[in-house]
């Protein structure tokens, strides 16, 4: 049952993701954390960190990890979870790849078509909102700790502020921002 749900969910996520990896994160969060509750918000934040620092497209990494964790959390053995992760990553590419075969020639000829352009223009705006919702969905005690005068909250806000400014300027690769924040966490909380 969970396998059918995984297949369907990731087919939909692949079909409705426009505008790159971050908007896929928004869709995966909506379905996997929000709708089905296959993983907690905390597990989702950890997954995002891990998929940023391993090689490969973030969308594939997120789908693979989410498929695995969803099946394990549902109480199935590990081999079933491996199947679930492969199923999720295959499903997430199935619809776009099918479209490549069917419509790529048509789309290349019509990319300046007024209707296609209008739809893409609206989708580009919507994606901004979806990624904002994903970021807001990650703001909570699992990311920052309890609000107040305590070490966890202070360190978390400081890390957030520094990473946000550096990411906005695009001077430092996200890989190093993740590695750096991990080291800061290790030092700040182990002392």
């Amino acid at each position: 049952m969970i396998f059918l749900q995984l297949l369907w969910t990731f087919l939909l996520i692949g079909a409705f993701t426009f505008g790159g990896g971050y908007s896929m994160i928004a869709l995966i969060q909506g379905e996997v954390v929000g709708h089905y509750g296959w993983m907690s918000a905390e597990e989702f934040a950890d997954l995002l960190a891990l998929s940023q620092i391993t090689p490969g497209p973030v969308g594939i990494n997120t789908a693979t990890y989410a498929g695995y964790t969803a099946v394990v959390n549902a109480g199935y053995p590990q081999w079933a979870a491996v199947c679930g992760s492969l199923l999720a990553s295959m499903a997430v590419v199935a619809v776009p790849v099918g479209l490549v075969m069917l419509v790529s020639q048509w789309l290349l000829r019509h990319k300046d078509n007024a209707q296609v352009a209008a739809v893409m223009r609206v989708l580009r705006l919507v994606v901004i909102g979806l990624i904002a919702a994903a970021a807001l969905g990650l703001v909570g005690e699992e990311s920052f700790g309890t609000v107040g005068m305590n070490r966890r909250f202070a360190v978390s806000v400081a890390i957030f502020a520094v990473v946000f400014v550096l990411a906005l300027r695009r001077k430092v690769s996200p890989v190093w921002l993740i590695v750096g924040s991990g080291l800061v966490g290790l030092v700040a909380y182990s002392l």
């Binding site: 970021a135 978390s156 890390i159």
Partner: peptide, 14 residues
């Protein structure tokens, strides 16, 4: 401890 440091960074990256 590492992941406590990573989570606010992920929020910023998104």
């Amino acid at each position: 401890h590492i992941f406590l440091g990573l989570r606010p960074a992920v929020v910023a990256l998104v």
